[in-house]
């Protein structure tokens, strides 16, 4: 004798079969999606009645979603069977000890502040150094005043002094001859 606990008559099954043979409805496509976390909450019985009804509507209309729910529920029950050691070893190897070391030694105190602003500080230091080099080099060269004075003197060398009256007379005489 089977230990199954069936329900429904042959007439019930026949009716259900006739309904399945009818034109396909697009009800599932119109239903809002159910996300993984909602389904997990429903499986745990943690959803409010209206949210649970929404999930159940989706499960009733979407066989793929129902497969997901049935597999997940069954897997939770089957989890008493230990996983193969090689799976555990491979999965544990996905995260290395170097990650732990980096996470285990965060800078503390003022160093933590420096670490947060490290990039900005680097840019500021380089910009400051560039400005110091420019200013210092310009100052060593004499600055603006000396450069202006030097330029004026050089220009003055090329400008002749105005002619005196005797010099004009000399040129007039030379031209007359």
């Amino acid at each position: 004798m089977s230990d199954r606990d069936p329900v429904g008559t042959d007439a019930d099954r026949a009716l259900w079969a006739r309904l399945k043979a009818g034109a396909p409805a697009t009800r599932a496509a119109r239903l809002p999606p159910v996300f993984d976390e909602e389904l997990a909450a429903w499986l745990d019985g943690r959803l409010a009645p209206d949210a649970a009804a929404r999930v159940e509507a989706r499960l009733a209309a979407d066989p793929a979603m129902l497969d997901l729910a049935l597999d997940a529920a069954a897997a939770v029950q089957e989890a008493a069977v230990p996983a193969p050691d090689r799976l555990v070893a491979r999965a544990q190897a996905l995260v290395g000890f170097d990650v732990e070391q980096q996470k285990a030694r965060p800078p503390a105190g003022p160093l933590a502040w420096l670490a947060r602003w490290r990039r900005s500080l680097e840019i500021a230091v380089v910009a400051g150094a560039f400005a110091v080099v420019c200013v210092t080099g310009f100052s060593l060269g004499g600055g603006v005043q000396e450069a202006f004075a030097s330029d004026t003197a050089e220009v003055a060398d090329f400008i002749p002094a105005p002619l005196t009256a005797s010099e004009i007379g000399f040129f007039v005489d030379q031209g007359g001859q």
Partner: peptide, 15 residues
Amino acid sequence: ARASLGTWLAVVARS
């Protein structure tokens, strides 16, 4: 707050 870790993992793992 929404689901137990085991159930959530089962759903996510299945997907």
